[in-house]
Design a protein around this nucleic acid. Sequence first.
DNA 1: TTTTAATGTGTTATTTTAACATAATGATAA
DNA 2: TTATCATTATGTTAAAATAACACATTAAAA
Lengths: 249, 249
Amino acid sequence: MPPKKTILRDAAPYLPELTLDCVILSFHEDRLKVLLLRWKGTQEWSLPGGPIQRNEAVDAAANRILKERTGLDDIFLQQFHVFGEVERYNREEIRHKLKHLIDPDKWYERAVSVGYYALVDYTKVTPTPDAYTEQCAWWDVQHTPALLFDHNHIIHVARQALRTQLSWQPIGYNLLPEQFTLPELQRLYEAILGKTLDPRNFQRKMLSLGILERLAERRRGGAHKSPYLYRFKKEQYELKLKEGNLFFT
Amino acid sequence: MPPKKTILRDAAPYLPELTLDCVILSFHEDRLKVLLLRWKGTQEWSLPGGPIQRNEAVDAAANRILKERTGLDDIFLQQFHVFGEVERYNREEIRHKLKHLIDPDKWYERAVSVGYYALVDYTKVTPTPDAYTEQCAWWDVQHTPALLFDHNHIIHVARQALRTQLSWQPIGYNLLPEQFTLPELQRLYEAILGKTLDPRNFQRKMLSLGILERLAERRRGGAHKSPYLYRFKKEQYELKLKEGNLFFT
DNA sequence: TTTTAATGTGTTATTTTAACATAATGATAA
DNA sequence: TTATCATTATGTTAAAATAACACATTAAAA
């Protein structure tokens, strides 16, 4: 491989050949949603992501991207996999689809990507495109379009990781608004686990963990019996997480 | 940051600023062991690891390093964390300690490292140093010396990951020789979990999983009642793993 | 006022776990 | 040759967790 444009690359503020991709998930109308970007002048979508600055921790870069795309700070963000294959995707195809947007030399190199997932409150996000894209929107994670790069695969791996980490991570805490009902929490767990749960057993188990506080209010407006509102007792929640005692089947 | 030696670096067969570190674990005399390297002309130890080739998958690089240090192929190898801090360790200190061995310019850059752990059969390993080191040896994971770089920290994180993944990974399968006794398997689990288990309950639970085959032979030579030998039923083991049903408390 | 479907609470049988006891074994020491 | 003793194998039981059920309550809509 001949050296090329080396001065330019090394002068760049970014680490070459290392990127990250963020699977930003939320929960809305009983569905898991993922935040996607549409590239300028195309109908092509991809995950948010990008390169890492030379003087920036990888975790910090993930937080920066999360902040830029959602407006949110201090959010649960978890690295879940490194995508380090040489031929992660068809680079020629990307070069063709995005040729009007990017420097072909810059994007033609093999890159390793660190995958992160973030769990955010749908109602608090302001989806914001980046310099290369013109639309940022939530997609039902079950019905994403064919994405650029290997991003469908990355989403798949993220969801697997989320399922196995469900017991050790503060998952409800970040995906739901501050106040929520038990049926809402149950539907979140069902969406992540991909199976239905018995509401009576779910309720008993959740409450027995001692991490929920029932409020005086109920959620009004539904067609039927109005459910109680709850919020997480933050200290107890984090205690349980440390103990690894939120295992859920 | 001024550009420097850019031609040289880009011509290099390795990805700049990306490395990997391997926490190679085995089990011997009831203790978890980790494979460490001693650097030439020093008393300084570190984990095996190194850079990734431009045309090489990151997983392939980990397998290459594992093979070079142990002689083993086709071994369970799991990436567990990306160490992406800017100041992972004191680079000045490393530069001083290893100044007789390395090009200071090359090693003075910030690097991101992908952490892997491997679980190997102690009896099958031939510890082999690399070009920079003159000794490769097993250390009790509880009593490692102060290591170079952030490698004590990497071992710590690897052990945490191993504990939480104990239920979903084929851990016994790789850490033990083909034939083993139930007390040996129990002591392995105790070493990983860091706590003692009740042998009666352990035995019943293990056997109830249906992944062990009892052999006619017993292990002779112990001072007391000779225990039965077992081996894993590979298909059943992998089935259980897929189901995520090896949870162990 | 009735209907309807979602919510909250309750019951029970089964399974799993935790805690504890004891018999069998086989080299070693007496 | 026999007794000793630590280790292994197997057994028992109470407590806890889980799974699979039934049913009363509620609030909007018909």
